[in-house]
């Protein structure tokens, strides 16, 4: 297996899919400049730069998706999605239902977010929960290059609009990527590490923080199971519930603000479906109710770090519900 960065894994997925299906097109603010290999292979009609106008980029993708093309659009940084909210939420997410099923919207929206580059809150804002909350949309966020490639291929083949969030901090981290045409199905979590005492659910870069926490816990005799959600909508409740039924303890970890984050939904579903199995209360770790600062230590402090994750798991393992 060759090692690819997440950035190159996305390029590989685009190349393989665009070879497979001539209906796939890619456009955005600089995609034709940055990925000139795609332009060289597929031509300037299928890979286009656009004006700096996120609303019309998204709207054009929606219109094209409904009428036969399969667009992938690069929106650069997640906060810029605010300019495209209407097109994604009101058009792509709703017009299938509202038209009685007359249209489908096979489109993928790429957006970067997360700590790592010190770019501040107008470039780094983990907004994935907004889209999870909106009907008709699917949401994914990979934690490694192999999943990025496989999830992007699945997202491109899916007939629904998919928000594809890319963790900035992982973008240039290399990882093994299978050479074959492996597709990672949407809605399927991965067990990143098996364990028996506590289930730790996460996605994106905090999966790696959870791994480091699990190493610390292992030295103390605590066995943590880590589930990498990969897909946030649909999310793999079956895998999470099966794990919690074995461990009886759950920590949910994400970089996005904790308030009404994806973790709140996971915690609620586990409480509803697996309450009898719980040996301790569910814990959520997430960012504070604050914009992200640019300054390195503050940016890092926003993100749940391995020590905090280990501490939360440790507390749960010492505590029992009476």
């Amino acid at each position: 297996m060759p090692a690819l960065t997440l950035y190159d894994a996305i390029g590989a997925a685009l190349t393989e899919e665009m070879r497979r299906d001539r209906h796939i097109i890619a456009f955005g603010e600089g995609i034709a400049t940055k990925r000139h290999d795609l332009v060289a292979e597929f031509g300037a009609l299928r890979v286009r730069n656009t004006p700096l106008a996120e609303g019309i980029i998204a709207g054009t993708a929606v219109g094209a998706a409904a009428t036969g093309l399969r667009p992938v659009v690069d929106m650069l940084f997640a906060p810029f999605l605010c300019y495209a909210m209407d097109e994604l939420v009101n058009s792509a997410g709703k017009l299938r239902y509202m038209s009685g099923g007359q249209f489908a919207f096979p489109l993928v929206t790429l957006a970067m977010t997360g700590a790592g580059w010190g770019v501040g809150a107008q470039h780094n804002h983990n907004v994935e929960a907004w889209f999870v909350h909106s009907p008709g949309l699917k949401v994914v966020m990979p934690s490694n290059p192999a999943d990025a490639k496989g999830l992007l291929k699945a997202a491109i083949r899916d007939d629904n609009p998919v928000l594809f969030f890319i963790d900035i901090g992982l973008l240039y981290q290399p990882g093994d990527v299978p050479l074959d045409e492996e597709v990672v199905p949407l809605g399927k979590a991965a067990v990143a590490r098996e364990g028996s005492d506590v289930t730790v659910v996460s996605y994106g870069k905090t999966v790696h923080h959870c791994r480091q926490a699990a190493e610390m816990l292992a030295t103390e005799g605590i066995s943590a199971e880590i589930i990498d959600l990969r897909s946030l909508k649909p999310w793999d409740a079956a895998t999470v519930l099966a794990s919690v039924e074995r461990t009886g303890r759950l920590v949910v970890v994400h970089e996005a603000n904790r308030v009404c984050g994806v973790g709140a939904e996971i915690a609620a579903v586990v409480a509803e479906e697996a309450f009898a199995c719980l040996k301790a209360p569910i814990v959520r770790l997430g960012g504070p109710d604050a914009p992200v600062a640019s300054s390195y230590p503050l940016e890092q402090a926003f993100v749940p770090q391995p020590e905090a994750i280990a501490a939360a798991a440790r507390r749960l393992c010492r505590r029992q519900i009476a």
């Binding site: 097109i25 709207g59 054009t60 993708a61 929606v62 219109g63 094209a64 009428t67 093309l69 058009s91």
Partner: peptide, 16 residues
């Protein structure tokens, strides 16, 4: 919204 989606529909027609 019709204005935002029209270019995509026209793009489909032109490209297909």
């Amino acid at each position: 919204a019709e204005l935002s989606m029209a270019p995509g529909v026209a793009l489909s027609q032109a490209m297909l």
